[in-house]
Structure formats: structure tokens, C-alpha cells
Computed example of a mutant assay.
Amino acid sequence: MSLLDDPKAAFADLTRPEWWVLGVSVAFLLFLFVAMLTGGLSPTYFLFLVGLAGMYALLSFGLNAQWGFTGLINFSVAAFFGIGAYGTALMTASGSPIAGGFNPLVGLAVALVVAFVLALLIGIPTLRLRADYLAIASLGLAEVVRLIVLNERWLTNGSAGLRGIPGFFVGWPVLSTFPEAMPGLRLEVVPGSPVFLETPFWQASLNGLLVVAFAGGAYLVLRRAHRSPWGRVLRTIRSDEDLARALGKNTYSFKMQSFVLGSLIMALAGVFYAHLNLYVGPGDLDPITTFYAWVAVILGGSGSNRGALFGGVVIVTIREGTRFLNDVALPIDPAPLRLLLIGVVIVAVMRYRPQGVLPPQRELIWPSAVDGGGTPETPDSGVRERKGGGGDE
């Protein structure tokens, strides 16, 4: 049921896990909104969290297109993320050792092209093999990319990283001067706790709109692809590749398409991160990024686009929420609690919801099939009777 067509019926059609996710999400947003109004949370930092959540959602979307759709085990999420980040940084950063000074749109194009070529190079020799070989090759790829970034100073500036990366909208008409042109605002909902909306806030709002555009576009593309005949072939390959091959499908070609699509979305996340953080370094290619993406997909539900989005938000909530524990007097160091909480989440999901919080089954149904589409017509006669009738005529 479409939310726009009939909101009441759409809410009535929600399952218990969907109600739970909706309730928790609304409660969490209200909590953040109250925290901003009372001065407990900076609006600029809130928009920064939105950007991080969108970035992890993009990483989850990319991995979901590979593992969730096709069953391709890719442990090089951090590598393609780094390719996207370094690709745009080397083209746009003032401190770039090889280029620099180009428009961010050029950096975006270069990053996606390099990610496309790299996905082809790793996919051509490995996608004909079984899943475990791809896992080993992708794990090696991630380490190779990280070591190149760390040691090839002439290309990547080595361990110093790349600084001087411009915002994504630098050089654009209107948007490039929007943060400086907007007036500073002072809101005081709670006496003694004013909230300031100044240039950093307006800059962060542009970043928020950018990641919403990236993540929204990726979601719509994957949603359409998942329900299409192409998506059905991918699900068949994941379930039984031999069956898909027996049905005449070129499984190698379909796996390559899925692998490239997911890699491009991961690189897109890296492009956004570079222009959000305005700095990239070898530490951004740490394997923990790959681990976070896998946890997000498993938590949300393998093959579920909604689940990948939800999982990315949960990862950012745990990752950034534990930072506030430093303000609480605890007998232990709160920093390691981040991985501890993520481990607890994995155990709980595997124990109580092994299919994920939002499994993909409901995403595979076209709304027209259940919303006003009616039921398929039942033929008056079978195939044999129709053939027989035609022969008599």
C-alpha cells in the first residue's frame, strides 16, 4: 500500500518489526530535536551525523547490491570507499601532489571511473570462481589499496593524507556563496540555552542535502533493480547459480554487473566523505569500515534496501553515541564499548532475527500488484482446451 495514496491503510499494513523500527526512529529523532532546542546538541553536529549516516547507508547499499542481491562476498568495501575519497581529493585538493584545483564534479567523475576500472580488474579473474575465492581476493585488494595509499607519497602524499579539499559546491552558482550569504540566527527556546545558526550550519545543511540526494538516488535505483527481471536473476544466482546457468543465464555477466554497481555506490560514499571531512588519510581505509558495512547489512536484512538504510543509521548511532559516554563517570574506558555494543547487536540479531530486522520479502512486491490492481483473471479454459478449440476451427 502506498503511503501517498492511502496513509491510513499503509500504516495499518505495517508488520510488527516495521512498527518497531518506525517507533524507535521517531522517538530517536524527537530526542535529537529536543536536544538541539535545549542546547545539548549543536545543530551543526546534528547535520554532521546526518552526513555520516548517509555515508554508511551508501556503503550498505553498495554491499547489499553485491552480497544481498547476488551473494558476492566482498571484503574490500574500505578499498572502494578509499578509491572514491582519494579519487576526488587528488583532483580537487590544494595539497594534491599530482593535480588539484579541479571542480568537484571532475573529482566525482574521476573517482567513479577509477572505481569502475578497479571493479572490472578484480572481477574479471575472480567472479568465475566460487564465493570463497572472491572473498580472499577482495580482502587482499583492500590491503593492497591501503598500502599503496600509505607508502606511495608521490601519488597520495603518504601518511600525511590530503588536506585542502574544497566543499562539493565550490564554484557552483548560488550554492557556493549560500552559507556566507545566509544571516546568522539566534534561537532561544529554553532560557539560557541559545542555539546559533551561522555559516557552519548552512554549510552543513548543504552537505546534508547532498548526501540525501546521493543516498536517495542509490535507493531508488536499487529498489527498481531489485524488483526487475534483472534483480530476479541475481536472486536466482544467489540461491542456486547452477540453476540460473541451466536456465540459460550468463551468470558471470550478471555477477560482474552487480559487483560493479555496488563498487560504484561505495566509491560515491567516499566522494561524499572527502568533501564532508575536507581531509582524507590512510586511516580512513581501515578494515573497520568494511566491518561496519557488513554489520549494517546483516542487521537490516541481507537483500533489503530499507534494512541497509536502517543498519547504516544504527552503526552511526552506536559509533557516535559512545563518544558522549566520556562525560559520564564510568569505572571503565568507554572507547572500547563501541565494538562491544556492535558485537552485542550482532549476537542479538543472529539469535532472535537471523533474517534481519527488515527482511526483503515485502520490498519485492510491486505496489500495483496489491493496491487497486485487482486479482489476475482466471482463464475459462486450460491451455489444452484452447489448443483443441483452435484445431477444430
Rank of each mutant, 00 (worst) to 15 (best):
A215R: 08
G216T: 10
A218V: 09
Y219L: 14
L220Q: 08
V221T: 06
R223K: 12
R223S: 15
R224W: 10
A225V: 15
A225R: 08
H226E: 09
S228Y: 07
S228L: 12
P229F: 10
P229L: 12
G231H: 01
G231D: 10
G231W: 01
G231Q: 04
R232T: 08
R232G: 06
R235L: 13
R238D: 12
S239H: 09
S239D: 15
D240S: 15
E241D: 13
E241P: 07
L243P: 00
L243Q: 10
A244E: 10
R245Q: 14
A246F: 09
L247V: 04
K249R: 12
N250S: 14
T251Y: 01
T251C: 13
Y252A: 12
S253E: 11
S253P: 01
F254S: 11
F254I: 11
Q257A: 13
Q257Y: 10
S258W: 00
S258N: 04
F259P: 01
V260W: 07
L261E: 01
L261W: 02
S263E: 03
L264R: 06
L264K: 05
L264W: 01
I265H: 10
I265P: 09
M266K: 02
L268G: 10
A269V: 09
G270E: 00
G270D: 00
V271G: 09
V271Y: 10
A274R: 12
A274E: 02
H275A: 07
L276V: 04
L276F: 15
L276I: 00
L278I: 11
L278G: 00
Y279M: 14
Y279E: 06
P282M: 09
G283R: 01
D284C: 05
I288A: 14
T289M: 15
T289D: 04
T290R: 00
T290P: 05
T290M: 03
F291K: 03
W294M: 04
V295A: 14
V295I: 15
I298D: 00
I298F: 12
L299C: 09
G300F: 01
S302L: 13
S302V: 14
G303T: 05
G303N: 05
S304M: 07
A308I: 05
L309H: 08
F310G: 09
F310L: 15
G311S: 11
G311A: 07
G312V: 00
V313T: 11
V313G: 09
V314G: 07
